[in-house]
């Protein structure tokens, strides 16, 4: 392979491969930590839910999720429900995840609720 082609390949991989790796990590984090309440598929139907008096958010609920900015979701994960006037049942995960991981988790949640809008390139703020 000539060096210019190689450089192009590396550059292309940097664009294509790294978001995919991040997406996988976010998926694993979601499946490990969030799934206990928000459910395997993010529908707010986790195994712990029947014991709760306040239901976890259904992340596939496009109508509601579109009313929330990425900053809201980020805050809810990092500082817990009370940070956005929601229940203490959503604990703060700021000590468990790095800021980067939380940003990726927000991206993952957007892929659950708002795929059409992602494709359209909507600014979630």
């Amino acid at each position: 392979m000539n060096p210019i082609k190689f450089l192009f390949t590396v550059a292309a991989l940097m664009f294509v491969a790294s978001p995919a790796v991040h997406a996988e990590e976010a998926y694993l984090n979601y499946k490990t930590y969030c799934m206990q309440c928000h459910g395997m598929h993010g529908k707010g139907d986790g195994v712990n839910v029947p014991a709760m008096n306040i239901l976890p958010r259904d992340h596939s609920d496009n109508k509601y999720m579109m009313k929330r900015t990425n900053t809201d979701i980020y805050k809810a994960i990092k500082f817990g429900g009370p940070a956005i006037n929601k229940s203490v049942r959503m604990p703060p995960w700021g000590d468990t995840f790095t800021d980067q991981e939380i940003t990726e988790l927000v991206g993952h949640i957007r892929s659950l609720c708002c795929e059409k809008e992602l494709v359209r390139g909507v600014n979630f703020k």
Partner: peptide, 16 residues
């Protein structure tokens, strides 16, 4: 909100 995941009597609270 600890009872989301922990039981404080048999059958009362979360499972994980």
């Amino acid at each position: 909100g600890c009872t989301s995941c922990h039981q404080i009597e048999p059958g009362y609270g979360g499972y994980t």
